[in-house]
């Protein structure tokens, strides 16, 4: 069990490091603009213009709020499911390993 925990922790650490290390090494020289926006700018620079506009464009901070809402909804549901699955396992008495009835 403790080895399992260790591997989980190392995986989390690896994910964090993967994004934190480039950020730290960079030392604030890069802008970290989005790739989607970069392509859009490139297309506009080449003279392409959109022929249809978004029906609704959230302004400024509203957009980051809605992105946070999307992440929160996903994270909430994911946490709920994993919590229920874990609760289910600890609620059933440990009988056979695996406990697959069928």
């Amino acid at each position: 069990m403790s080895r399992r925990r260790l591997v989980d922790a190392l995986l989390v650490l690896a994910v964090v490091a993967l994004f934190a290390v480039p950020l730290l090494l960079d030392g604030g020289t890069s802008e970290y603009g989005g790739t989607d926006a970069a392509v859009t700018e490139e297309l506009e620079a080449d003279g392409h213009t959109p022929w249809f506009d978004s029906l609704f464009s959230p302004a400024g901070e509203v957009e980051s709020g809605l992105f946070a809402l999307q992440a929160a909804l996903g994270g909430g549901v994911l946490g709920y499911v994993l919590g229920r699955l874990r609760g289910r396992r600890s609620a059933t008495p440990v009988s056979a390993p695996g406990a697959g009835e069928r």
Binding site: Y32, Q70, L82
Partner: peptide, 26 residues
Amino acid sequence: LLLGAAGAFTFVLSAIKLPSVTGSSS
């Protein structure tokens, strides 16, 4: 329940913009 987890995983991950070695984020 698992189907919900699968949908939720895409929902979270596609909302998060992460920095990359190239100096842009995605």
